[in-house]
């Protein structure tokens, strides 16, 4: 495992909202094909970190690169130049993002939701995008819902569509921000199954979740964040079962 190249390289990332420093120096490397699960108390900066990775939030300091290419900036000498929006958008197509509340486009059908970005951002031919979308829908178990509108689906089904939509760009990294926490308990399983399936296929993933059992099952690395820093990271067997830091112990005793 540890021989595969680094896919996501996060170095010294700081992020402040006004005087409030939310990320206070994050260093994290995720290797290609690995699944990293981020856990931590509410407000610890997990969502902010994910959003910084695909440049939905600008960094205050530090850098993020995907497969060796900086996200959102170009480096020349010792300076980082912020990219134009068009280039940022192009680089984002390599990073899939799955939101807590799905954010499907309600006025487009399920199929149109999935084909929109491949056609408009990657300029794939429409028929090719459609075939790929149908294959992806089949994979997430929703082949019969291609022509439905998102509001006609259950929450679990909507999130599976959102995952298919992210996969349609063939991203190098998939980011999940609490993909199941907006769902009723009985719908959580179907979404986790889809994520597990994607993980098994060897996609590099960073998953923020409160589902500790799920984390243990799919994670190669578990990262515990608190108050804007990484407190502890390692294989799930270490971090979840034999945490070394007091803060990790305290958090786990609350959620387990």
């Amino acid at each position: 495992m540890s021989t595969s190249p680094v896919m996501v390289d996060i170095r010294g990332v700081h992020k402040s909202f006004g005087p409030h420093e939310v990320l206070r120096g994050i260093d994290l490397q995720v290797r290609a094909g690995e699944v990293t699960v981020v856990i931590g108390p509410s407000g610890s900066g997990k969502s902010t970190l994910l959003r910084a990775i695909n440049h939905l939030e600008k960094l205050s300091r530090g850098s993020v690169s995907i497969d060796g290419a900086l996200v959102g900036y170009r480096r020349r000498g010792n300076k980082l130049y912020e990219l134009k929006e068009r280039e940022i958008l192009r680089r984002r197509t390599r990073i899939g993002f799955v939101f807590q509340n799905f954010n499907l486009f309600p006025h487009l059908t399920v199929l149109q939701n999935i084909t929109e970005a491949p056609v408009s951002a990657l300029r794939r031919p429409r028929t090719e995008a459609k075939e790929r979308a149908e294959a992806l829908l089949d994979r997430v178990g929703l082949a019969d819902k291609a022509d439905a509108y998102p509001r006609q689906l259950s929450g679990g089904q909507q999130q599976r569509v959102a995952i298919a939509r992210a996969l349609a760009l063939d991203p190098q990294v998939l980011l999940f921000d609490e993909p199941t926490s907006a769902l009723d308990p009985e719908l959580v399983g179907e979404v986790l199954d889809v994520i597990k399936d994607v993980a098994r296929a060897g996609t590099t993933m960073i998953v923020v979740t409160h589902e500790i059992g799920f984390a243990r099952e799919i994670a190669d690395t578990v990262v515990f964040m608190d108050d804007g820093v990484i407190v502890e990271q390692g294989p799930p067997g270490d971090v979840l079962d034999h945490p070394r830091q007091e803060r990790t112990k305290a958090f786990l005793s609350k959620v387990l």
Partner: peptide, 23 residues
């Protein structure tokens, strides 16, 4: 969230406007 999702998918700016926001 709609614009955010469109931006995260890398949909070009004008297209975001025409296809996602305007309708």
């Amino acid at each position: 969230g709609q614009l955010e999702a469109a931006a995260a998918l890398g949909i070009p700016r004008l297209r975001q406007l025409r296809r996602i926001v305007l309708p």
